[in-house]
Amino acid sequence: MSTMGTVIVTGAGSGIGRAIALRLAADGFNVMVNDYRSEAAAAVAAEIGPWAASCAGDVSDEGDVAAIVAAAEAAFGPVTHLVNNAGHVHQALFRDLTAEDFDRMIAVHLRGSFLCSRAVIGGMLARGAGVIVNIASQLGQIGGVELVHYSAAKAGIIGMTKALAREVSAQGVRVNAVAPGPINTPLVRSLSEDWQRAKAAELPLGRFGEPEEVAAAVSFLCSPEAALFVGQTLGPNSGDVML
Rank of each mutant, 00 (worst) to 15 (best):
D64F: 06
T161Q: 01
A126R: 13
A19C: 12
G122Q: 08
I158R: 10
Q232V: 15
I183K: 01
D61R: 09
T80H: 06
T185R: 09
L139Y: 12
T6Q: 04
E167Y: 02
F94R: 11
V148A: 14
M124F: 04
L97R: 08
A200N: 05
A226Y: 03
D64N: 10
F114Y: 14
T185A: 07
S117E: 05
N85M: 05
T80G: 07
A66Q: 03
L22T: 07
R23F: 12
S238M: 01
G172K: 06
N34F: 02
V9A: 04
E73P: 11
N84T: 13
A46F: 10
L97M: 12
E146Q: 15
A45Q: 04
N84H: 00
E210C: 06
N84I: 09
G128E: 09
N184I: 12
Q91C: 11
G77F: 05
H149I: 05
A53T: 13
A170W: 13
E212S: 13
I8K: 00
A52P: 06
G49L: 00
E210N: 09
A136C: 01
R174G: 11
I68G: 07
L187W: 01
V230E: 12
G156D: 00
L228Y: 15
L228F: 15
L125Q: 05
A119N: 00
P236A: 05
A215G: 05
P236L: 12
S192K: 10
M4Q: 15
R37S: 13
I183V: 13
P180N: 03
A43P: 02
G122S: 07
E62R: 12
G17L: 00
G63A: 04
G122P: 02
G11T: 11
S223I: 10
M1G: 14
N30G: 08
Q232A: 15
A19Q: 08
A227M: 07
Q196T: 12
V230A: 09
R23W: 06
A217E: 02
C116Y: 01
Y150E: 00
R189V: 00
E202A: 05
T3M: 15
A70Y: 07
A179M: 11
A75N: 12
L93P: 14
M242D: 01
R166A: 13
A43I: 01
S190C: 06
V175E: 05
T3Q: 12
P78Y: 01
A107V: 13
I132R: 08
L110N: 06
A153N: 02
H109V: 11
A170I: 11
T233L: 08
F94C: 10
G144A: 06
E213K: 11
S192L: 10
L205F: 13
V44N: 10
V178S: 04
V230H: 01
L234S: 08
I132Q: 09
A42K: 07
E73M: 07
V33Q: 07
G144M: 09
H149T: 06
A227N: 12
